[in-house]
Design a protein around this nucleic acid. Structure first.
Lengths: 340, 340
DNA sequence: TTGAAAGCGCTAACAC
DNA sequence: GTGTTAGCGCTTTCAA
């Protein structure tokens, strides 16, 4: 049977209240009693029951972690890494994470994850873009929420976001530094705030260097940012007959698709066309040529979210704080100086 | 504030005991009271507190789900699908799943996941191969455990396993049916029970058709079953100078690596060499040619494990039951009749 | 068939 | 500085 606080108290020759006090560093406890108690705790290998604790404290000690099925099943370990960061950080705070997915198409009748309905979490972390319907439902719940890598179009929320604008700027600037001026931007779903921000960064870089923005170089028709759509985006560019010497793809998947399309047409990378991606998914390195990209610290995103959640729950901070996680340009072999 | 059983009782004009009784279909309750109570529950949108319930019932309602970091971060959504199956199935039983990873190298000092140490789960599901040290630690805990897709070399456990032998048989038989006799087997880590079983299936098929087993056709030196190692395995085969017209790769990753190696040497698939994989990871279909493989129902593995866990916790079954989940041959375009 | 009451393990007033 | 005690929300005997 599990050891209870009572047994610890008995063994240490104090009251249960004292044990509790010692364990939570509350009030002043004489050094002597503290030692006695700690010794008993150690010897009995006592771990307080979270359940009993939760009952009196009116908290569960659980944090919900939600993302869409699509995102969870993505082949690059992007969201899984974010989750891992969160899970890792809980170790510093004694929370547990309940992971669940929601359908990518979230209809009105769709039930919320049970742990939300049954109020079995103290806070909710939402990773990646989720349907608006879902955001609406959870917003009305009076539950601390933190978004990661997504910010709903309406409302004010706590969030941990990627510094997409700066990333877009870095990527584009890198290409300009290499002498490129005809830089294409390919991005799926422009509705997605992140993609849009990367485009903004792209435009900012152009402006900074006095290069005229050319809408023909921008392809954002696709619905999602998949490899296939990267491939297609290049086809679109070709059909338009617009000239380009470099490509900034809004993410690595699209960059890889784009590279495949270029290869198929016997266009050499980076000799004829330079390519920059965004995200730094692991497999980038194994591609030929290895992809220059903007690295996103996925693990950190998860860590920051959990830290923010902890602060939020402890009321250490005001609500709706935003954290912008910095990104970094990783230069590999898919970009090169413009050939004369 | 959250609605409690007291308020429901008041509203229904009964005692809290009665409400509890109704909610759990215990004892005989008059149809009338039952209706009154249920109405109040609905109107107040009452959900019993799991925490309070857990305290008296001495259970947490949580199930732990553990896998190694490596497996969780694998780029094919193999284990994530298994997890999703488990998570999905919990909806029928009101358990929650706590997911955590353990280091792939699990040393003696490595701490167990906190929810295990703190006894905050009622049972543990372990997916994929895990270090022996970990198995030993959790085995001594008197905690219901279910293994998925892995069976420890020592001891007796409950497990949900893939029918690897049958899968190996199916794959090999398919090749033999197409006229092949010189069939190579490439598998990494032969220590892994699953791989070994697939090899057994391979041998069984050969025997069944009276084809002599040739050890030169078997490559199992690699440490892991990665794409790279699939590539390497073919190189090994080539160096040996052994002739083969078909390859049974122990999983899709290796099959894909093998195909890349063949392509690089201008060997046509399936015209010159047929290739069969195992697992049916999503991206198989997008390969050129689409890969013939043995499909593993990942989602089902997760579901079965959770069902088994539930039965185990409800003592509906004896301990150490094993479930063998059937596999299916999916014929695509990487295999063809042997050319005369 | 239903209700009263005890108690699960813990924390936090409050008393000493 | 430490102990006593009430009570968190629920289930379950036992009595009515």
């Amino acid at each position: 049977m599990k050891i209870t606080i009572k047994e610890v108290a008995e063994k240490a020759g104090v009251s249960t209240a004292t044990v509790s006090l010692v364990l939570h560093n509350k009030r002043r406890i004489s050094e002597e009693t503290r030692k006695k108690v700690l010794k008993a705790v150690r010897e009995l290998n006592y771990h307080p029951s979270r359940v009993a604790r939760g009952l009196v404290l009116k908290q569960t000690g659980n944090i919900g972690f939600v993302l869409t099925e699509d995102h969870f099943l993505r082949s690059e370990p992007f969201y899984t890494k974010i989750f891992l960061g969160t899970e890792f950080e809980t170790r510093n705070s004694n929370y547990f994470v309940l992971l669940s997915t929601i359908p990518t198409e979230f209809s009105d009748e769709e039930p919320l994850p049970r742990y939300i309905v049954q109020q079995n979490i103290d806070g909710l972390i939402v990773a990646g873009k989720v349907p608006l319907k879902f955001v609406e439902k959870i917003s009305s719940l009076n539950l601390p929420i933190i978004f990661i890598d997504y910010y709903p179009p309406k409302g004010d929320y706590s969030a941990v976001l990627i510094d997409n604008i700066h990333g877009g700027l870095l990527a584009t600037q890198h290409l300009i530094d290499l002498g490129h001026e005809k830089i294409a931007f390919i991005g799926g779903d422009i509705e997605h705030p992140s993609i849009n921000e990367r485009l903004i960064g792209y435009k900012m870089a152009l402006e900074k260097y006095g290069i005229q923005f050319n809408a023909d170089l921008v392809v954002t028709g696709e619905k999602s940012t998949s490899k296939e759509n990267g491939f297609n985006a290049i086809c679109v560019l070709m059909e338009r007959g617009v000239e380009f010497t470099a490509i900034f793809a809004c993410n690595d998947a699209m960059a890889i698709g784009a590279m495949e399309c270029l290869k198929k047409r016997d266009i050499k990378i980076p000799k004829q066309v330079s390519v920059v991606g965004f995200d730094d998914i692991e497999s980038d390195i194994f591609h030929d040529p290895p992809l220059t990209t903007v690295a996103v610290p996925k693990f950190d995103l998860g860590i920051e979210a959990m830290k923010l959640m902890r602060d939020l729950l402890n009321k250490n901070i005001r609500k709706n704080k935003k954290i912008l996680v910095p990104v970094e340009l990783v230069v590999r072999q898919s970009t090169a100086r413009l050939q004369a």
